[in-house]
Design a protein around this nucleic acid. Structure first.
Lengths: 351, 351
DNA sequence: AAATAAAGTCGAATCGATTCGATCGGATCG
DNA sequence: CGATCCGATCGAATCGATTCGACTTTATTT
């Protein structure tokens, strides 16, 4: 009988607690938030009342409204959760991001660009947004977010007004990789790319790829290779995974005119290509050189030649930019460099 | 001059739009939400006014407060983001979860149990929570969430009042694995376990592990083995990764009294153990049988003997339970079965 | 002892929307 | 032609907290 005596239905609110404690709402609020002077005795009374009413603390929804902050940072990615998290680079970035934003006590809200009728981008209660690996609907998404006045940071995306850019020198890095192979005397190389557009379909790289491709990272890395090799074969993988790499590797290596070197746009793909080579009884790097991208440090039995990128640092930089924006500052864009690691999967072209 | 005429500083709100459109706030709200009859002409006026003021739609924070819903589902995991996402099973679960909850247009908020002063469990604006791979502070976390009246779903955790349980028959599955090895005549087996407690330190499994272990999954799987083998060696890995598996494998296999079979609590660990065996010049399954858990389908050159678990389905079930709870229903707990896959990494015990 | 400062508490405005009940004009029905 | 009903719109209450300025007390200074 007494349990219902002091309030209506539903969860109790601060007003009920204040009433029971015999203080005003403002005082009760002060007691909980700790902002402002409150006598110890009063605070105790408030807490006791809260305990008695089973009050779990201020409602975050109301706090968000009043403060104009929700403490939530949106992470927007094009892909499905599964695809996005298969890539170790994305995970490393998220980790760096969580590290930096965590200092302000913010949480990360996972969103995908596909949200048409969904809550998604248009109506999630967040304070800022990080765009990762977005491509197809990037402009559309940015337009919506801009309309909402949402601070934005984009990682490896085309530059846009009002969006802080965190970049990687994908073009130059890929050119260095290509040059490394050219120095080894390779003339016939093939590139296994990450997906180029939203439809993650595997298949040969068509000559008109430039017109349809929307994935900035893949594009820049292809162009980088193009800066060194006038022509090369290409195969678009369906995802950044070993399985996709195997498929691509077989497509690229199983034929009469096979290349002597394969440039994979990620380490996972590179490992896959190596597995494919093994299946085709080709020696690496004797018959075919394979080079990756990422420096993901994947266990494979090889010391993969690859371009090491600071993925965690990218995430950290994005996080710092977000924190700065929320503090009212104007963070500068950042561009990261890569470090080339020569392992044992590349060597002189066979003659 | 006219840009500032109609409102104060900051973003415009619905009231400003309504004023400019010459309608009441209620009508403007109806125009945006689509709930309720609004004349086409009126709607057009409202949208025009919104456009002119650069109004990006209703503020989600205010909507949350009014509706009592934020459209956010918390995903609580013990580990750091990086660790949690290294495990393919967690990712698969998240994927299933995102699939089901996505239908209601909800976003997933990543939270870790460690959130002391952080936003965290105590003060994130969410509608429900999924607990994944939690252990140490589980009771504490649940207590806080219960206080907040938060609907909860826990995956593979000890059963608790008011928390919908999504389970896997870890105990029986592990017993089956052990029985498989016993049938092959193995008498000396070792178990490589997932972390048992929050301190993810690698090391031999101590006899008093039961007293300190808090990770339900690891515990149940160990007990399952114990139901078949009275005694066995054990080694606690620092994470579910190939690297940790290699370390554990070497610790377990490099010695005079080495076991003839190793039961790993995850496929990643199993692959690591196999790599360790290779490094020690042991043949699999000739000299040592290795069995995993998960059915993660990791490319390794072997057809790993393992216990396949429906990870995506677990996530889906958790998502469905959440959706049901939010709809006011009372979802039933679900327990999933596993399927044993006999590959080529287990065989008769060497004599 | 009067003046000033400081601590503690309260009232009321505010954040930005949703939603219930009331109102009003016009169309339909009998 | 009067009664009824429905579509469209509006007013006002509400969600649950935060925060600023004002008001009491009590302590300190001169």
């Amino acid at each position: 009988m007494s349990a219902e005596a002091s309030g209506g239905r539903g969860r109790p609110n601060l007003a009920a607690v204040a009433a029971l404690a015999g203080v005003s709402r403002s005082t009760a609020s002060l007691a909980f938030s700790g902002a402002g002077p409150v006598a110890d005795a009063t605070r105790a009374k408030v807490f006791a009342a809260a305990e008695q009413l089973n009050y779990g603390g201020p409602d975050p929804r109301a706090q968000s409204l009043r403060r104009g902050r929700s403490g939530i940072i949106g992470v927007v990615m094009e892909e499905r959760v599964r695809d996005a998290f298969r890539d170790p680079m994305n995970i490393a970035m998220l980790d760096g991001l969580a590290d930096e934003t965590g200092t302000t006590g913010a949480g990360l809200l996972l969103l995908t660009e596909t949200g048409g009728d969904n809550l998604g981008i248009a109506s999630a209660p967040m304070d800022a947004v990080v765009l990762i690996g977005c491509s197809t609907r990037l402009n559309e998404s940015v337009a919506i977010l801009r309309q909402r006045g949402m601070p934005m940071v984009a990682v490896e995306a085309p530059h846009m007004d009002g969006v802080v850019a965190i970049d990687l020198r994908n073009h130059d890095a890929s050119a260095s990789i290509a040059q490394h192979l050219r120095d080894f005397g390779h003339t016939r190389v093939a590139v296994v790319t990450l997906p180029l557009e939203q439809s993650h379909l595997a298949g040969p790289l068509m000559p008109d790829w430039r017109d349809r491709a929307t994935a900035e990272v893949s594009i820049q890395r292809l162009l980088g290779v193009g800066a060194v090799y006038d022509s090369f074969d290409g195969y678009v993988a369906s995802a950044s995974s070993i399985e996709a790499g195997i498929q691509a590797g077989i497509a690229v290596l199983d034929g009469p005119e096979r290349p002597t070197a394969v440039i994979a746009q990620s380490d996972l793909l590179a490992i896959g290509v190596i597995r494919a080579a093994e299946q085709l009884a080709l020696r690496v790097p004797g018959d075919v050189s394979v080079v990756g991208f990422d420096g993901a440090h994947i266990e494979s039995g090889y010391d993969l030649t690859t371009m090491i990128q600071p993925a965690v640092e990218k995430g950290r930089a994005a996080g710092r930019a977000i924190v700065a924006m929320l503090a009212g500052e104007e963070p500068k864009p950042v561009t990261f460099d890569t470090v080339f690691h020569v392992g044992d999967t590349t060597g002189p072209a066979p003659r």
